[in-house]
């Protein structure tokens, strides 16, 4: 198990290095950073100076290594558009996106699994048919359209929920602790969880963002569940006279979890990226909004940093998924139990 985990971590690092290479190549070949740093009035000496300052006179592998090691320390350079460190921009806008992603991910998982189980158990029921058809409509409506419609209905027509921004937010963290004489500063975090208007502002964007993932998870749980319900051990569980609830949840649902968390992990990982759309619709001040602005302005450092951030999120979620496999499936814990008998 330990060997497997280490192997997966190494693989994740390779993935991050490759994504880093893509991001770095954008720096190298797309646009000229010198153009971006200097205005129209520049001398050859200015150009040489900036090139040396940015390390552009170094060979490719050296520059790549520098890029990676800087990125690992959170240094993605200066935004072309805003002329301030990319990391500062990310740090101030990440909480908005992460809170939104967290709430919509939770929504997608809980509702998605519940509906998936219900539609699988009542495979030919009337309610299941309605849920399945509705889910197809959900998949066929682009996220931005759902957002527009929800905002119009609940904010403009009914006027019960806000359609723009995060509402009131509170800054937490930022405390400085002194441990054995060393100063440790906690990162500060602007949260919307602590005020009523902050929570209300989360409702529409979270539903908009989570709906698509929810339908996918629901359909996946349903099809996996139908597959498992055909297995011999489910027939045997029925033949032993277990209650339907025990058969469905204790025996069937647990066995669907390995494929479900694999795909659900991928889906939740992409929530960060899909937040771009929701943030645009609801004027949500998160990193997705920053990314859109960066794309339009060809702000390469911002784009590269965002790319790396999304990959890191993915890798972390997938590592968690890998560890969950061990918790769910005893067959994978072979090396631990082998000595037991």
């Amino acid at each position: 198990m330990l060997a497997y985990t280490i192997k997966r971590i190494l693989q994740s690092i390779v993935v991050l290095l490759v994504v880093g290479l893509v991001a770095f190549s954008m720096f190298q070949y797309v646009g000229d950073p010198v153009d971006n740093m200097l205005g129209q009035e520049r001398t050859q000496a200015d150009i040489e100076r900036v090139r040396a300052q940015l390390g552009l006179d170094q060979p490719f592998p050296v520059q790549y290594w520098k890029f990676i090691s800087n990125a690992a320390q959170g240094d993605f350079g200066i935004s072309y558009r805003q002329k301030r460190p990319v990391m500062d921009i990310l740090r101030s806008s990440a909480p908005a996106t992460l809170e939104l992603a967290f709430v919509s991910g939770l929504f997608a998982l809980i509702i998605g699994i519940t509906l998936g189980v219900i539609t699988a158990i009542r495979q030919n029921g009337f309610g299941s048919g309605i849920i399945m058809t509705l889910s197809l409509i959900g998949v066929s409506l682009p996220t931005f359209l759902i957002g527009i419609l929800l905002a119009h209905l609940f904010a403009v027509e009914l006027g019960i929920l806000p359609s723009k921004g995060r509402g009131e937010t509170v800054i937490i963290g930022g405390w400085v602790w002194s441990v054995f004489g060393t100063q440790i500063q906690f990162p500060s975090w602007r949260t919307g969880f602590l005020t009523e208007s902050g929570l209300r502002a989360l409702i529409l964007p979270s539903i908009t963002l989570g709906l698509y993932q929810m339908t996918l998870i629901m359909r996946l749980v349903r099809s996996e569940m139908l597959e498992v319900l055909r297995q011999d051990y489910i027939r045997f569980a029925r033949a032993r006279g277990l209650r339907e609830r025990a058969v469905n949840f204790r025996h069937a649902l647990k066995n669907t979890m390995v494929p479900v968390i694999t795909i659900a992990g991928l889906q939740l990982g992409s929530i960060i990226a899909f937040a771009i759309i929701t943030e645009t619709v609801f004027a949500w001040p998160g990193i997705g909004n920053q990314f859109i602005l960066a794309i339009r302005a060809v702000d390469i450092p911002m784009m590269a940093a965002y790319l790396m951030l999304v990959s890191v999120m993915f890798v972390i979620i997938n590592l968690i998924v890998d560890l969950l496999y061990f918790a769910i499936d005893p067959r994978l814990r072979v090396d631990r139990t082998a000595g037991g008998h």
Binding site: G269, A273, I276, A294, I295, V298, M303, V310, S311, F314
Partner: peptide, 13 residues
């Protein structure tokens, strides 16, 4: 690991 919409936007950018 790179959601489709992100890939498309990067290529576009």
């Amino acid at each position: 690991t790179l959601p489709s919409i992100l890939v498309a936007m990067l290529i576009f950018g």
